[in-house]
Every structure is written in structure tokens, then in C-alpha cells.
Design a binder for these strands. Structure first.
Lengths: 251, 251
DNA sequence: TCGAATTTGTGCGTATGTATC
DNA sequence: GGATACATACGCACAAATTCG
């Protein structure tokens, strides 16, 4: 490779990526086969293979052994609005409110069990490892489609022996926590959301309708009342279908 | 490859991965060279190469040309705090403020060019496609390590023919959007951050010290003044090393 | 049902360029 | 400069899966 040029396999990958992005190669169409890439671009078999591997790693295409390499569908991600800040009603704002709190419409399934806090959960809830907690698993759907997995933990020291002990009673997902806590005279006043991303585990992607390795967004959310954690949760959403929107005041 | 066996390169990768995970090969140590792998495992050069590539794609090791392949440190992901909400000083809070706005310490490189707004950027800035904008590319580093890529767009209608036209030059260079706009009597009052995740492109991951396919977090950030966008940016951070923390008031 | 052609995925041997020590 | 190591590149072979006549 002469100085200053990029490797041949990246040059080929760039050209194929461009054709995918500009619509020359729309979703579900077949990429040129490795043999055709070799002749069309005048490169070796190895270069054609490496170029396909780059596009596969980037998620643009998937290979089907014996059949071909196909352009993957890339749906426009929907927004999940995760913010406590709302401008006053009636005020003109640039934010499309019609999308609403999509995360909290639709249906869900849940199941709760009592458990003891793991060290990680204990740290997030500022309790001792081994303390009793209520653990609840959720699967949220919008329009029937799986959208978000959630596991939440609440210290039984807060909700135990109260009508709010079981989270699935009443509305769910953030507002649910706030309102259930309010019924206990616990005023939830702020929340932290810690956003990360990683390849999805097989269990997660199968529940969310994907394949292992698809990227997921993971949010560690903790609600606080007067500086004390009252609930923490791990939210997992498929990154190819959703984005997470925050709307914040400055200063 | 006989039935029921896995490919040779995966067998080699599994063994090396095990040695990394059980501490036989601690961080910063060098993997056996490709030539040594070939002889130690009795495989071909290609198999040794593919095995190294698997571990690189998984983020366990990184290759340094001419030197060796080294076990990467896999630290707990650091937090990038992305919030305008700060509790009053002196008040007891559960948030570790010592981590500060890590994203904006360290060093960076940038380059600005004038360009015309693409339809997507025009929509984000609420201007017309083709309108003039100032586009600036950044590469942020912390402690010398690449940490975040950023591309920002500002309408020239806002900053044109003012000392703040070039984000990194003039009396307010490098001080951030809010301060630079304040110098123009433009009061930035809120911001939206739209968080997504996807496999990184080859270009991005090479700049960030990874390989194509490594998961990146992408934040589309837009600053508003009186309801009008004054700057929008795409931030790209490697998801295996960073998380993004939001701290929000409830209600 | 069979078989031929195509395609991906895996594997091998070799060569060359370039970075590092 | 020399030795070592990674990165790229070429050409080939074969197995498994798929497609299609």
C-alpha cells in the first residue's frame, strides 16, 4: 500500500457503504458476491472478504452462507423521552410533543420476587449487601412489539408492609415509582440515568426480538427522595429501533 | 473441519481469552506473537492472525504495529456527566462530583470548514437545506487517550461576521457553545440530547482506538436559545470505556 | 430426487510494507 | 542497521449451505 492511501479493503468497503447509504443498494438486496467484488474492483479474494467483514461488523449487511450477503434493514429509530423537564403548557417550543412518552404507553408484563441485594445493587441503593429488596422484571411492548426490558429493585425497608410493596399495582415506569412513593409520603425529587451500550446478551435479544450481538442501550436509573435512593432499575432497549431523548435546562 | 468441532481460529482465541480472563495474561502484557502462536498451537499463520482478530474485535487486546499485541485494561467505564442540573453547593447529595465534567478536560484537536446544511442538519437547526453553516470536527482526549469524536454545526446566520464565528479561535475560542454565544448576547437556555448506540464505523473506531464494529454511543445534541437552535452536534464515544450520566429533577 | 453451480466461511502458504525495538 | 512483529495483500483449496434446473 503506497504511503498516504488507505488499505484496499477499506476503499472497497467505503464504496459499498456509500451505495447502501445512498440507496443504490436498498435493504434486502444482495451485495455483489465475493467473486464479483474481486473482478469489479480489481482486487484479490482476501480484499473482497475483508471488505465484506467490515460492513458486517458495522451492521450494514449480514452474510447468509450459501446464499449471499444482504443489506440489512435499518429502521428509523423511535424516541423514548426520558426527562423530567417539561416546558410550561401552551408555550411554543421546538419539541415535538406528539411523540409523547412513548415508553410508557403500550402493555407490559411483570413479575416480582423478594430477594437479597447483591453488592452492586446494594451500592446503588445505599443499603447493605444481603438486605431484603423487591425485585421486579418487566417486558414492555408498544403496539405488541417488545420494546424494553427492565429489572427494578426497591428496598423492602421503604415499601415493605405497605400497599405499595408490589410495583405492578398502578401505572408503571418512572411515573409509577413517583406516584407509588407519594402514597407513602415519600417525595421523589430527582433521578439519575446512567446510559451505556453493549452487544445484547442472547437472553435479552431473544426477548426483544433480535439476534445475539445486536447492540442494546442499557440505562441504570435510580430515583432519589431527599438524597436517598428509593428505587433503582436496569432498562435495556434495542439500539437499532430506539433512541433515548433528554431535554435539559442549561445552567 | 470435522463435524462438532469449532474452527481452529476460535479454538486458539478461546484459549487465549481464557488466559486473559484468569489472569495468566494480565493487562499490558504481550500476547504470544503471531509466529509463536503458530508454533505453540501448531496452526497456520492465517489461523493465528484470525485468532488475534477475534480478540481484538472483542476488545480484549489491541495490536500495535511493529511491537506486539497487548492485553487491554478493561476498566469500569467512566462517566461523562451530561446535565445542566447541579444541586446547590454545600448541599449533601449522593452524586460524586469529583468526576466533574470529564468530557471537557484534557486536550482536543479541531478543524472548521464552511459548508452547506444537509437536509438532516437543516432540520435539526431549523434552517433551510443549503444554508451556510460552520462545521467543526473535534477529537477529544483524556490523558492522551482518544475519548470522543464530535462534529458540530452552527448556522452562519447566527455567528457569521462575529468574533465567535470560528469555535476555536478568537477571544472566546474553546470555551464551549454557551459561553461563546453569551458573548454575542445569545442566551442558550436549554439543550436536547438524543442518545443512540450502534456499531462504530471503521473511520470512527480507528480514531477512537478500536476496530470496526466496536459499539459506540452517539449523542445528537442541540443547543437552543429562546426556542431556536443555535448549535447542533454529533458526539461519538466508545461504549466499552464510557457511560453517559444524566441527573434530572423530577416534576 | 438428484446434481450442478454458486456463495459464504474457513483455512493454508507466501510475500511485502511499515512500525518498533 | 538489523531483527522482530503487525498489517495488508495475493492466490488457492475445500466444506457447508443454498439455489435452481
Amino acid at each position: 500500500m503506497p504511503f498516504g492511501e488507505q488499505p484496499a479493503y477499506l476503499r472497497v468497503a467505503d464504496d459499498l457503504r456509500r451505495k447502501i447509504l445512498d440507496g443504490t443498494l436498498p435493504p434486502h438486496t444482495r451485495l455483489p458476491s465475493q467473486a464479483r467484488i474481486r473482478t469489479e474492483y480489481g482486487v484479490s479474494d482476501t480484499v473482497a472478504l475483508e471488505a465484506r467483514k467490515v460492513l458486517m461488523a458495522e451492521g450494514f449487511v449480514e452474510g447468509r452462507s450459501g446464499s449471499g450477503t444482504y443489506v440489512r434493514e435499518r429502521p428509523e429509530p423511535r424516541r423514548i423521552i426520558r426527562t423530567g423537564y417539561h416546558p410550561a403548557a401552551g408555550q411554543s417550543t421546538p419539541f415535538r410533543q406528539e411523540q409523547g412518552d412513548e415508553g410508557f404507553k403500550g402493555t407490559w408484563e411483570s413479575s416480582s420476587v423478594q430477594a437479597t441485594a447483591t453488592p452492586r445493587i446494594a451500592e446503588r441503593l445505599r443499603i447493605q449487601p444481603g438486605d431484603r429488596v423487591m425485585r421486579t422484571n418487566y417486558l414492555f411492548r408498544t403496539e405488541g412489539e417488545p420494546m424494553m426490558l427492565s429489572t427494578s429493585w426497591e428496598p423492602l425497608a421503604v415499601t415493605g408492609r405497605t400497599p405499595a410493596m408490589l410495583p405492578e399495582e398502578g401505572p408503571v415506569g418512572g411515573q409509577g415509582v413517583v406516584q407509588r412513593m407519594a402514597a407513602l409520603d415519600v417525595v421523589v425529587d430527582h433521578v439519575t440515568e446512567d446510559v451505556g451500550a453493549r452487544p445484547g446478551l442472547a437472553e435479552e435479544t431473544s426477548l426483544l426480538g433480535g439476534v445475539p450481538g445486536h447492540v442494546v442501550i442499557e440505562i441504570q436509573r435510580t430515583y432519589y427522595a431527599s438524597g436517598l435512593p428509593v428505587e433503582t432499575a436496569d432498562l435495556v432497549v434495542p439500539a437499532d429501533r430506539y433512541r433515548v431523548a433528554y431535554h435539559l435546562p442549561v445552567k
